[in-house]
Design a binder for these strands. Structure first.
Lengths: 119, 119
DNA sequence: CCGTATCCGTAACGATACTG
DNA sequence: CAGTATCGTTACGGATACGG
């Protein structure tokens, strides 16, 4: 049985404790920020350097790029590997978990595209 | 071909215009707020009244319940039907689109449960 | 029973300048 | 190339009180 309130097996009341630990809610809040989808989408094809990502996502600031990458890394979706002395080269890529997540988002995208709602 | 940047067919650069119109991003930001998942989860089983929802979701305020319901209604996921004179009775339930979304979230929940990441 | 109005604190985000 | 530091603005969310 799932511990997930959103999976619908927690009784008739959504308790605060169960909701905080809900995997779906946690996931949605993590990738529901402004830039995570764009980063995941790009890294799905190949690995990127920092400035390269910056240039590839119109409108993002380096500050938010750093913060979002760190968050995705902490969640286990993105891996960061350093290489070389100055000029430093850093490689960002999706982990196995990240690629798995990406497939889920792709499926969600198929659905969203088919069911254009009030967006 | 999808217009969705996250679906991965928009070229090597994520433009601001394409990103704003991205169905996945829009969807994630809409249901990635604090209370939408809880509401959707409850309404998936049956329809609820306002105060009934309020009591069923521990920690939510009436203010946020109202705002979240309005947003979900505007997106087409929730329907709101009034009935009767004071004391007014209002029924909230999932639309067909909302039930469809719920299934997607359920699938996402299965995945999240199976791939416990750094939550 | 079903909300709205107001106020306030926190967190997200953006702009800019600076560093190894 | 790959970031950090600082500052200001805006969005999100909670508390409380009031009205239909």
């Amino acid at each position: 049985m799932s511990t997930d309130p959103v999976s619908g097996r927690g009784g008739a009341v959504v308790t605060a404790a169960a909701y905080e630990n809900c995997p779906v809610t946690g996931l949605l809040r993590r990738i529901g920020d402004k830039w995570s989808p764009a980063i995941i989408r790009l890294l799905a094809e190949r690995s990127y350097g920092f400035n390269e990502l910056d240039r590839s996502i119109e409108g993002i600031s380096r500050r938010m790029l750093t913060r979002t990458l760190r968050a995705l890394e902490e969640a286990g979706f993105v891996s960061r590997t350093t290489s070389g002395t100055p000029p430093a080269r850093v490689d960002y890529s999706l982990t196995e978990l990240g690629r798995s997540l990406r497939e889920q988002l792709f499926a969600l995208g198929q659905w969203a595209d088919a069911h254009k709602s009030g967006l």
